[in-house]
Design a protein around this nucleic acid. Structure first.
Length: 509
RNA sequence: GGCCAGGUAGCCAAGCGGUUAGGCAACGGUCUGCAAAACCGUCAUACGCCGGUUCGAAUCCGGUCCUGGCCUCCA
């Protein structure tokens, strides 16, 4: 099966059919840079990051365009409030955005266009719309003009959201503006009020309306039709609807073949919003858990549906990621210690056994099959779980139940190596458990030590004392140390190579 | 009011006509000086409710209840 993606425009999963394969163009609506990003942004950009990584795994040459809207009412409002130029606000939050995306391991996109560097294209597009009668000019501020888009000029307006103009007006929350021909008409160009950033145009000093920048930048970087246009659900109306209305009459072609929209992040089953105060920035969250944990959490639900955000769920994800890193580290050590022999891979070994149904088709294939179904990351994590569990079973030497026979360590090592080699490709797409396990686990432990006020040196000393007690068979003393450390959330893990320790985070957060 | 999602075992969450998703928690077991981790088993013939279609429905159809969202800026 080929990659299928849910298309908002048709309401169906459709095969990805790029116009010029293997090239895929994708325009992802970026942020308006007036504040720090929240977990809703994290969900959108992590979802699309995984989608892009998977398309690349599938052999597509993906060009990703993700804009910054750096001219906007909210930026101006923020600048006025802080008493700084608007450009300072947008520049600051572009930097912050990049910091957050970097932390989340969202891969850099191909092009990051900004409104301020695409003014000529925007003005030219507005001009074309006026010329062909899609837009009209009215009096604005101080002799300058405003330009409005006429929704009546575009018969298929609202085809993406499947609404009707009557429905929207029934909401009766559309602002009344005497100069508009239709209440649903929206601004393409706004005349500048005193003190606002502005650019020269045929209509005097002004700035673009909210939607036009994406039409202009998408055209500039992807051409008349982009293969995939993506953003949050909330953008379906009005933003994407308006983009379509602005672009299609001028381009004479569909703006996008596929429209992808990610679902919302809810907090305690309510929409996250600033007014409700249930609002978390990405860095708030990364204060609590690792980027892997946040990514893993976001991937536990397919991108299109809502996802409920809660500390307990994040903590669950972090523990799960920790387990996976532990397994990965253990696998690496196991392979190193057991000198894997050459021979058939796990798929052949599993044939005709209980484990065949689980992994016989091949881990990579199962993963691809899951992701081909509209990037079903939840299913993909199931594949990951099955594979890791099987590798652990082998390392435990408990494979006879599954395989009907016991294998020598060298054979097990061969299979474990093969499994993790395949898993490497998967975790590279998901962007979780893809770091050096020792480094990750050390950082995790250090963070928990800090949170619980634990001194690592002291722990090591206590462990040494316990080792001495154990050496002289004084198990009572050894157990006393275990209990002493357990009281501080420190858990000891004895192994052939010595005692490892970790910090449990379950109590007190 | 209009439009759109969703309701799956203690919790999270796949599946969307027939064959074990997966994870977490709990409990039992293997292992261990004791543990932890890991693995095995149990919880699990679960799918909001009522009808209908079908040899067969969590999956399709009709109705109904509930939750959330959009219709204003929002990923």
């Amino acid at each position: 099966m080929a990659l299928h993606i849910f298309n908002t425009l048709t309401g169906k999963k459709e095969p990805l059919q790029p116009r010029n394969p293997p090239r895929v163009t994708a325009y992802i609506c970026g942020v308006t840079v007036y504040d720090l990003c929240h977990v809703g942004h994290a969900r959108a950009y992590v979802s699309f990051d995984v989608a892009v990584r998977f398309m690349r795994r599938r052999g597509y040459d993906v060009k990703v365009i993700r804009n910054f809207t750096d001219v906007d009412d909210k930026i101006i409002a923020r600048a006025n409030k802080d008493g700084v130029p608007a450009a300072d606000v947008s520049e600051k939050f572009i930097k912050e955005f990049n910091v957050d995306m970097g932390a989340l391991k969202v891969q850099p996109v191909t092009v990051e266009p900004k409104v301020t560097t695409h003014m000529p294209q925007i003005v030219a597009l507005v001009q074309k719309l006026v010329e062909r009668g899609s837009a009209y000019v009215v009096d604005g501020v101080g002799g300058a003009k405003d330009v409005y888009y006429s929704v009546d000029s575009f018969p298929t307006y609202l085809k993406l959201s499947g609404r009707s103009k009557e429905d929207l007006q029934a909401g009766a929350r559309v602002e009344v503006d005497e100069r508009k021909k239709d209440p649903l008409d929206f601004a393409l160009w706004k005349s500048a009020k005193p003190g606002e950033p502005s650019w020269d145009s045929p209509w005097g000093k002004g700035r673009p309306g909210w939607h036009i920048e994406c039409s202009a930048m998408c055209l500039e970087h992807a051409g008349p039709t982009v293969d995939i246009h993506a953003g949050g659900r909330d953008l379906i109306f009005p933003h994407h609807e308006n983009e379509i209305a602005q672009s299609e009459p001028v381009n004479g072609a569909p703006l996008a073949t596929l429209w992808m929209h990610n679902g919302f992040v809810n907090i305690d089953n309510e929409k996250m919003s600033k007014s409700l105060g249930n609002f978390f920035t990405i860095r708030d969250v990364l204060q609590r858990v690792s980027p892997d944990a946040l990514r893993y959490f976001l991937l536990t639900t397919p991108y299109r549906g809502p996802i409920n955000f809660a500390d307990t769920l994040l903590d669950d994800a972090e523990r799960r990621v920790e387990t996976l890193y532990e397994s990965r580290r253990r696998a690496a050590e196991y392979v190193l210690q057991n000198a894997p022999e050459d021979g058939p891979g796990y798929r052949e070994v599993v044939k005709g056994t209980k484990a065949e149904g689980m992994l016989g088709a091949g881990i990579g294939n199962l993963f691809d099959e899951a992701m081909d179904d509209d990037f079903n990351s939840a299913r993909a994590l199931g594949v990951l779980a099955d594979a890791v569990r099987f590798a652990n079973t082998l390392m435990d030497g408990k494979e006879s139940e599954l395989l009907g026979k016991k294998l020598p360590p060298k054979t097990r090592a061969r299979l474990v190596r093969g499994i993790w080699e395949e898993l490497a490709g998967i975790i590279a797409v998901l962007g979780v458990v893809d770091e050096d396990p020792a480094g990750y686990l050390d950082r995790l432990r250090a963070r928990r030590c800090a949170r619980h006020g634990i001194d690592a040196t002291w722990v090591e000393q206590r462990i040494a004392a316990r080792a001495e007690a154990k050496a002289r068979k004084d198990f009572a003393a050894a157990d006393a140390v275990r209990a002493e450390l357990a009281a501080k959330n420190v858990v000891l893990k004895d192994s052939a190579t010595g005692t490892r320790w970790s910090v449990e985070d379950r109590v007190a957060g």
